[in-house]
Amino acid sequence: MTPATLIPIPYTWILSLSAVLFVIGTIGVLLRRNGIAIFLSLEIMLNSANLAFVAFALEFAARRGVAVALTGQLFVFFIIGIAAAEAAVGLALFIALHRLKETIDVDRFNILRW
């Protein structure tokens, strides 16, 4: 086993990038009205969460002195699987809604309102 080497990136930098991406994704979700664009912004937010998991895994490994930061990577793995499932179901929902109203503008959908 080769010894672990230090990389010169503080984990706070990766966390800051994750926060910036999360804010961009939040703005997209709040300000777009096209359903596909909202989903894309949601993917940005999920990826920023993944990046935060990676940053914390690196810092955990550095503080504990272990060679492999495993749990954080497993979380990212499961989040990627769940994001794939979410994208499939969400896009199927938008196909069904498009069939109903000929649009995917989320402002036009008030069919659950009474």
Binding site: T5, L6, E59, V68
Partner: peptide, 10 residues
């Protein structure tokens, strides 16, 4: 401030 992260190298 972190001292840098470990590269998980097995």
């Amino acid at each position: 401030p972190s001292f840098g992260s470990l590269l998980p190298d097995t």
